[in-house]
């Protein structure tokens, strides 16, 4: 290996070790009415890494994910305690504009949810609403760039006016990712983004997640443990509203420290 490659890898490793988290969650509790769904979650999410959240159904992982861009604000009779920081700023501070926040922290859902519009309009929607540009050429460039980053450009470049609903489910999900990318987010939250997709489309999305992590910070909730093992740098196991263990993915899947992690990932729960 060339010397400069070794040097670059070493430097990158050092930077990774000392970098402060992109998001920092401190002592987070979340309540649905009087029911506590999350208990005292503290976690640091590193920039340009894929962080996977796993755990049995109802363990709180999706609730936690939705706390990260205040999606739970829309649910009545809920309450959050603790802090969620993005680049050191408390995202629950009254001065924070939630629309701006959700531009910085985008979300991709379980089922692809394109608008019943053309492929182009789906991707252009965010930049238009947010007024990112008024120039047609610039908008074209944003749409192309977003579709390229979502690995969909080659498939749709000649059909940008096609109704998005005519795309396959896998293409629709990549379109939804392109729609998120179009507003230049910093963090992308993904809530079981492949659970509605076939294995080929799933592998494409997983490859895309790895590629996107060179530019964006990704947090993904998944029921598929092998997916967490394949795509993530860090993995956290949630259990009954608690974060049981959070560590490098390789460690979680080969040498977990907690018995509950061992039981869950080896399928010996219950």
């Amino acid at each position: 290996m060339k010397l400069w490659v070794v040097f670059w890898c070493t430097m990158r490793q050092m930077v990774n070790q000392v970098q402060s988290p992109k998001m920092f969650i401190q002592e987070l509790d979340f309540y649905y009415g009087s029911v506590r769904a999350l208990s005292s979650i503290s976690i640091g999410i590193l920039e340009r890494q894929v962080t996977a959240l796993i755990g049995p159904s109802g363990c709180g992982k999706t609730t936690f994910l939705r706390c990260l861009n205040r999606m739970n604000d829309t649910i009545p009779n809920t309450r959050l305690e603790g802090k969620v920081y993005l680049d050191g700023e408390d995202i629950y501070h009254p001065s924070v504009d939630v629309v701006d926040l959700r531009q910085r922290i985008g979300m991709v859902f379980q089922k692809p949810n394109p608008f019943p519009q053309s492929v182009f309009d789906n991707v252009a929607f965010g930049p238009r609403v947010l007024g990112l540009t008024r120039e047609r050429e610039e908008l074209d460039a944003i749409v192309e760039r977003s579709l390229q980053r979502a690995a969909l450009w080659e498939e749709v470049k000649d059909h940008l006016n096609t109704d998005a609903m005519e795309l396959s489910l896998g293409e629709q999900q990549r379109l939804c990712i392109a729609r998120v990318l179009a507003v230049e987010p910093e963090v992308i939250l993904m809530d079981e983004p492949t659970s509605a997709l076939d294995p080929i489309a799933t592998m494409q999305i997983e490859g895309l997640m790895r590629d996107l992590s060179e530019r964006y910070t990704i947090v993904v909730v998944t029921h598929n443990m092998q997916q967490a093992a394949r795509v993530s740098d860090k993995t956290g196991l949630f259990w009954l509203g608690e974060l049981v263990e959070f560590n490098d993915t390789a460690m979680i899947f080969t040498r977990p420290k907690e018995q509950r992690t061992e039981a869950y990932i080896t399928g010996r729960v219950g």
Binding site: M225, Q226, A229, F253, T254, R255, P256, E262, I265, T266
Partner: peptide, 9 residues
């Protein structure tokens, strides 16, 4: 079976 943790070891 894609074993993990102690199973994989």
């Amino acid at each position: 079976q894609q074993p993990a943790a102690s199973d994989l070891r």
